[in-house]
Simulated scan of single mutants.
Amino acid sequence: MTADSIRVAIVDDQELVRMGLRMMLDAQPDIEVVAEAPDGDAAIALAARREADVLLMDVRMPGTDGITATERITAEDDAPRVLVLTTFDLDEYAFAALRAGASGFLLKDARPPELLRAIRAVHAGDAALAPRVTARMIERFVEAPAPQQAVTDPRLASLTPREREILVAIGEGLTNDELASRFFLSISTVKTHISRLLQKLEARDRVQLVILAYTWGLVAR
Results as ranks from 00 to 15, higher is better:
G63N: 05
R162M: 12
V190F: 08
L156M: 02
V17E: 01
L56W: 02
A97H: 09
V168A: 00
A121N: 06
A100K: 01
A3D: 11
L106E: 05
G101N: 10
D53I: 06
F184K: 15
G63K: 04
D30S: 04
A42H: 07
A48P: 03
E114Q: 08
A130M: 14
R49H: 07
M24K: 12
R111L: 15
R140T: 14
V151E: 13
A75S: 13
T64C: 09
G101Q: 06
V34D: 10
Y93G: 07
M57F: 05
R99P: 08
M137V: 00
A121P: 03
R7Y: 03
V8M: 00
R136S: 13
S5M: 13
M137E: 06
Q148A: 15
V133D: 07
A121Q: 14
G63E: 11
E114T: 08
L218E: 11
D89I: 03
M23N: 13
Q28M: 01
G217P: 01
E92G: 06
I166A: 01
E32L: 10
M23H: 10
F141L: 04
A100V: 11
E51S: 01
P147I: 08
M57E: 03
I211D: 12
M61C: 02
S186P: 10
M1K: 04
Q149W: 07
P147C: 07
T64A: 14
A45D: 10
R111Q: 15
G40N: 04
P131D: 11
A130E: 13
R155I: 04
I170N: 12
A130G: 02
A169D: 07
G173H: 07
Y214F: 12
V11H: 02
R99C: 13
D177L: 10
P147Q: 11
L85Y: 00
L167P: 05
V11K: 04
R206K: 12
A128W: 02
E71A: 15
R99N: 14
D205A: 10
V151I: 15
A118C: 06
D4R: 05
M137N: 03
A157W: 09
R206C: 02
E165Y: 03
R49F: 00
A27P: 01
A169Q: 10
L185A: 12
R204E: 14
Q149M: 13
R7P: 01
D39L: 01
L106Y: 02
E172G: 15
F184M: 08
A42Y: 09
I166M: 05
A128E: 01
W216C: 12
A69V: 13
P29G: 14
D26H: 05
G104Q: 09
H123C: 06
A157F: 12
L129E: 05
Y93C: 04
A157G: 15
A128C: 06
D205W: 11
D41A: 15
D65T: 13
